[in-house]
Design a protein around this nucleic acid. Structure first.
Lengths: 140, 140
DNA sequence: CTGTGTGCAAACACTTTGCAGGTGT
DNA sequence: ACACCTGCAAAGTGTTTGCACACAG
């Protein structure tokens, strides 16, 4: 996977088996993954702790972003190129959609969260929107 | 607390000390509370498990609603009267705001989530919006 | 009286931390 | 060579389940 290696290099991360595999999982699955999902998708077995730390590293470096879950967990999804508009402002103003049928949470990258007017005195920094319903493939 | 008792009756819930106290906490605190928050606010000590079950009961009966958290936990907040428009459609299309300074999450009941157009095939059922930033009282 | 709520104990699940040794650059 | 990554062990935290007894209606 040439792509994986070059992405890690771009993000100034060391090339290790664990990172390559986890990144590969994110690239191939096109939905958000919780820690447990990542773990179960790995071909090689890595320590739970290593997976936790790798996810944290990817998150810190801006390779992946958090996706909230209605059950209270956190999932992660790959950041797309449009996250880096301006390189400093790492923004994720797109909608996340969790299907109640198949259970998958996906980034609707092209559905952006509209600008919401807050009451006087509130300063917005980040917005997270999770929508639940039935996804395209499940509503046949 | 006459109010508390009548609310429990309205929701067809038995009157117990635990329920009265927990409901009282929600009424007096005007922000979302996680399980641990509820527990620490109780004057009388109830079992952890009882608190969990009470929250679940309140949630099932529609007395409180979930508030997502960016850390991956779940908080709860009282449902307002406007939740019951139509009595069957229990909707919470308001914005939740978590202050990064004081850490409190509040319901912005009057800031409703705008209607978002989804791609063909997606059916929306529920929407949850969490905004983070600085709240009114912290931005002095 | 009956069904439901509560407390206790225990199991279970999830996440973090410290340390020793291994690996990428 | 050095800094960083990994695995193991353990602790810390959060949540659920089963059962016996207590209590509201």
């Amino acid at each position: 996977m040439r792509e994986v290696k070059s992405i890690l290099k771009d993000y100034k991360l060391r090339q290790t088996d664990c990172r390559e595999e986890i990144l590969d999982v994110f690239i191939n699955k096109h939905h958000a993954l919780a820690h447990a999902d990542v773990e179960s998708q790995l071909t090689e077995r890595f320590d739970r702790v290593t997976v936790y730390r790798t996810l944290k590293t990817f998150l810190d470096k801006g390779l992946i972003h958090k996706v909230l879950d209605n059950e209270g967990g956190v999932k992660y999804a790959l950041c797309k190129d449009n996250c880096h508009a301006g390189d400093h402002l790492h923004h994720h103003d797109h909608v996340h959609f969790k299907c109640t049928t198949c259970g998958l949470t996906t980034c609707l990258d092209h559905v952006i969260i509209p600008n919401i007017i807050l009451p006087e005195g509130y300063q917005r920094v980040e917005t997270n929107l999770l929508m639940q319903g039935v996804c395209k493939t499940c509503s046949f």
